[in-house]
């Protein structure tokens, strides 16, 4: 076992896959010589050389477009978009080109590429560097979407994303880059589309993702300690494909569901899951499912404002407590 930070886990995953498969290449702004603005790709240029780790101009459309073209012609590119908010400047490439190519060509062209990005808030960067874009990417047919919440999962899910024959968006959470944990040595590869139950409890199910997972776990600990409420916390990990089986199994067992979502309210990932739960597990529900989200606003910068906007441990505790009491 080695202790790895979330950012080191990104480099470890990329190194693991680049060592295994010479077709895996990395491009993005500042990813090569500088090792990434979050230092998530540090050391890769030295290890793999400038033909496989390439700095690009500030040209997000070119980055994604080039990754797509390379994927069509035999490489397995990993493209970094520095901040998830910047998806908006290359949205045509992501939503119209990358996502639709396989379908439009009736399967003639597969697109084995990975788009990594620093998603989410909590670091006081303000509205244009903090958005949680799960709902942007999840709604596009043709994109797979994963969001690791731990260093171990960064390795396993990123490796799985690189090996997948389809486009996968990996939402790294920028507030988690410094988080450290023990990660097993040796090759690590997960399966896309598998949720993980992080904690088991019989009173309610909490579904969360990315940086909301540690907060949900902290809230669950507090509720257990202070109120004797036992929560199951499921780390959704993969939005597309979605592990409906694990989610529904848990909801059926507890009869109560809370989602903890960092994305702004409207069309957040939890809304889709709620609709599935209501359609498919209605009879098992003891109460209406509840979504805990960022309000439908861009994220403010000041610490007190940002903290108030994002779902916090306190808000999770209070919301769960209130609804379980009623």
């Amino acid at each position: 076992m080695a202790i790895l930070s979330y950012r080191e886990a990104v480099a470890r995953a990329l190194a693991q896959e680049m060592s295994r498969d010479p077709k895996v290449v990395l491009i993005g702004e500042d990813v090569a010589a500088a090792g990434g603005v979050f230092k998530a790709t540090a050391g890769l240029l030295d290890q793999f050389g400038s033909s496989r780790v390439l700095d690009t101009p500030i040209a997000e459309q070119a980055i994604i477009g080039a990754a797509l073209g390379a994927a069509m012609n035999g490489l397995r590119p990993v493209a970094e978009i520095m901040f998830a908010d910047f998806f908006a400047v290359c949205w045509d490439q992501i939503a119209n080109q990358v996502a639709k190519t396989r379908y439009m060509t009736n399967g003639q062209i597969s697109v084995p590429l990975v788009i990594r990005t620093a998603n989410g808030g909590g670091v006081r960067f303000g509205a244009q560097h903090s958005q949680s874009v799960e709902n942007w990417v999840m709604m596009i047919p043709g994109l797979k979407v994963v969001a690791p919440s731990t260093p171990r999962d960064v390795v396993g899910l990123t490796a799985a994303a690189i090996r997948d024959p389809d486009p996968v968006v990996v939402l790294e959470h920028k507030a988690l880059y410094a988080v450290r944990e023990e990660v097993p040595e040796g090759e690590l590869v997960d399966e896309l589309g598998k949720a993980v139950v992080r904690r088991e409890g019989e009173d309610a199910t909490v579904l969360s993702l990315g940086a909301m997972v540690p907060r949900s776990l902290a809230a669950a600990d507090r509720l257990a300690r202070e109120r004797g409420i036992e929560l199951t916390v499921v780390d959704v990990r993969s939005l597309v494909p979605l592990d409906v089986t694990t989610l529904l199994d848990s909801v059926r067992a507890t009869g109560r569901l809370f989602t903890v979502e960092e994305n702004p309210r409207l069309c957040g990932w939890g809304a889709e899951i709620l609709s599935i739960v209501v359609e498919e597990a209605w009879d098992d529900l003891k109460a209406a499912p509840i979504r805990i989200t960022t309000p439908h606003v861009p994220l403010p910068a000041a610490d007190v404002l940002e903290d108030a906007a994002l779902p916090s441990v306190e808000r999770i505790v209070d919301t769960v407590e209130k609804h379980l009491a009623s």
Partner: peptide
């Protein structure tokens, strides 16, 4: 989408050079 394929063509050409095809 007007212009969308120009970056894609660059990527395909990059792969061609990188793979020596």
């Amino acid at each position: 989408i007007v212009g969308a394929h120009l970056p894609v063509a660059v990527g395909a050409a990059w792969a061609a050079r990188s793979r020596g095809t």
